[in-house]
Structures are given as structure tokens and as C-alpha cells.
């Protein structure tokens, strides 16, 4: 029993965080939004980092890491509001193919020349596919109508898990932006962040985020360990992460005041991604019902002795 990421895992995540912070800042998001939102150089950078092959087995040339590590990296993609659909291809699509034993051609995913668009019946579209374009509120999300959808629950669980992971990263980033703004914006002769009216709201976001994270990591480990209860934990994670992200998004725009309502402040990119992911791969009602069925329906053992049931 050791509810911690290893130093190696944390180092990997920090490497991705630093790389994205250095190469994928808000100025890049703005450039993408204004000049066409895909840039092969960004994708190639992710390939060079080994991220497209993160979940590809070593025999196919990947790193062969598990879902907890992938979730940790997905959170970093959320933190950076990464435009490229890396998470869909590499952390949802690849583990789904691997689970079905479909290993052919994964070398091409590692090399970055093959994408794995994933579409589930619960949201019948995919990221960066070949079908007719749909317009998302998120300007960096290229949705296309899916020709074929799957109703495989394993695919849905992978998608929901990685959405939850991105949402905690997105929430972290929005909280950070709000805090930084509250430190420099002065009114009534002091930084607005010195007012308890703002402090307490931001502290409440911190509580929601920090108690959503371990739920996400637990869900990732439950998927990795193939627990029968894993779908319940994924749904728990999706609800907790969505609630934390929505609270933080609404608090962050409030802290920015009228500036928060402008295109000029960066916050909107993260906020729009959060809205999109909250509804994707099973919305709040869907996941809450799965938890409800298990907890009130009695299929999941509950109580103090069942922390890791």
C-alpha cells in the first residue's frame, strides 16, 4: 500500500510540464486560434518527447507505461491547454487498442504518423477525424462527425478517466491564473487578492481540486489493476474533477472581473476546454448515476474497511 507516484513518475510529469510551459504558452494558443489551429511542429515535439508512444508496449517501440502515469501526463496536457489531440490518440486510443490485442501498426503511432481517432456512441464525434466538421466552443478542439462509433464500455471508461485527469490540470491552471491576477490587480489601494472575499473563494477552489486529484489517481490505478469496480471509480473521478473545474472556472472569471470577460485575458482558453471536457465521455448525470447505482444499489461494498474496494 503506497498511495504515491514514484520519483521517476513525477520526474516524467515534470519534464512534460516544463516542455509544454516552454513551448506551448498562451501566446501559442493565440497564434493557433488566429492562424489555423494545428501546427505539425507541435505534434512533432510531442512525438520527440516520446509521448505518442507512452502507452504503446515496448515491443512496438513505445514506453509501455501504465494508466496512472498516462493520467498524470494527461493532467499536464490540461494544465497547458494542449491543442493537439494527444490524449485522444495516445492515452485513450492506444490503451483501447492494446486491451483488444490490436498491436499492429502501433509503431506508426509512436512515430507520430498514425492517429487513433476515438468515437463513442455517448458522444458521436471524434477529434481531428475525416468527417464533417462540428464547431466546438473550444476553438482549439477540432471535432468531426464520426463515421463509426463504438459502444465499448472500456473505451468510455478510458475517455472519461483521461478527461477527468485533464480537468484537474485545467483547474490547477485556472486557479494559478486567478491567483497571479489577484496579486497584481490593485483596487482600494491594495492587491485585490488581499481581500478575504476573494481569498476564501480561491481557497475553496484549492480544496475542491486537491481532493479531486487523489480520486483521479485512484481511478487510474483501479483501471490499471482491472478491478471490477473500476467503472465506478472512473465515474467518481469524472464527477469530482468536473465539479472542481467548473467551480474554479467560475471563480477565476469572477476574480478577473471585467477583464475575465475579454478575449485579451488567457483564461477563456482553459475555461472553454473545461466546459467541453465536463460533458465529454459521459456527462455529470451519466457518471453520477453510475456511482448512485453502485453505492445506493449495493453493488459496491462501502464503509471504512472498503476504502480500496
Amino acid at each position: 500500500m503506497d498511495f504515491r507516484f514514484s520519483d521517476d513518475q513525477l520526474t516524467l510529469a515534470e519534464g512534460v510540464r516544463d516542455y509544454l510551459a516552454g513551448t506551448h504558452g498562451p501566446e501559442v494558443l493565440r497564434r493557433l486560434d488566429e492562424q489555423g489551429n494545428r501546427d505539425p511542429a507541435i505534434w512533432q515535439g510531442l512525438v520527440d518527447m516520446g509521448l505518442t508512444g507512452l502507452c504503446v508496449p515496448e515491443a512496438q517501440g513505445g514506453l509501455g507505461v501504465g494508466l496512472p502515469e498516462a493520467a498524470l501526463i494527461a493532467a499536464e496536457c490540461g494544465r497547458a491547454c494542449l491543442a493537439e489531440p494527444l490524449v485522444d490518440t495516445a492515452f485513450v486510443g492506444v490503451p483501447w487498442l492494446v486491451a483488444q490485442g490490436k498491436l499492429d501498426g502501433l509503431e506508426d503511432v509512436v512515430a507520430g504518423t498514425r492517429r487513433v481517432p476515438v468515437a463513442h456512441a455517448i458522444n458521436p464525434w471524434e477529434a481531428d477525424g475525416a468527417g464533417a466538421a462540428l464547431t466546438s466552443v473550444d476553438p482549439l478542439r477540432n471535432l468531426t462527425a464520426a463515421g463509426q462509433t463504438s459502444d465499448d464500455p472500456h473505451l468510455l471508461n478510458l475517455g472519461a478517466l483521461m478527461s477527468a485527469a485533464q480537468l484537474v490540470g485545467l483547474a490547477d491552471a485556472m486557479l494559478h491564473q486567478a491567483v497571479e491576477y489577484a496579486k497584481i490587480r490593485t483596487q482600494f489601494g491594495q492587491p485585490v487578492g488581499a481581500f478575504q472575499g476573494l481569498k476564501h473563494q480561491l481557497a475553496s477552489c484549492s480544496v475542491a481540486i486537491e481532493f479531486a486529484k487523489p480520486v483521479v489517481w485512484r481511478a487510474a490505478q483501479a483501471m490499471q489493476d482491472r478491478l471490477d469496480s473500476a467503472p465506478v471509480h472512473v465515474s467518481h473521478a469524472k464527477v469530482a474533477a468536473s465539479d472542481a473545474a467548473m467551480l474554479t472556472a467560475e471563480t477565476a472569471i469572477q476574480v478577473h472581473g471585467a477583464m475575465g470577460y475579454t478575449y485579451e485575458v488567457d483564461l477563456h482558453f482553459w475555461m472553454k476546454r473545461s466546459w467541453a471536457l465536463c460533458g465529454a465521455w459521459g456527462d455529470r448525470a451519466y457518471h453520477l448515476k453510475r456511482v448512485d447505482d453502485a453505492v445506493l444499489g449495493g453493488t459496491l461494498p462501502i464503509g471504512p474497511e472498503h476504502t480500496f474496494a
Binding site: M1, F211, P214, L288, D292
Partner: peptide, 28 residues
Amino acid sequence: AREAVVQAWGAAQAYAYNTYGVAAKIMA
């Protein structure tokens, strides 16, 4: 009230996971 009951289970579990994390951190 039904949703609050489900969320109570979730929050108590979240608190437990967090505490296991804190315990692991202190043990290290």
C-alpha cells in the same frame, strides 16, 4: 438529498485517498 448521499460517499472516499497519500508521504 439522494445526490447528497451519493456525494457523501464520494467525499468520504476522497478524504480517505488523500489521507493514504499523506501517510505515504510522512512514511517517506
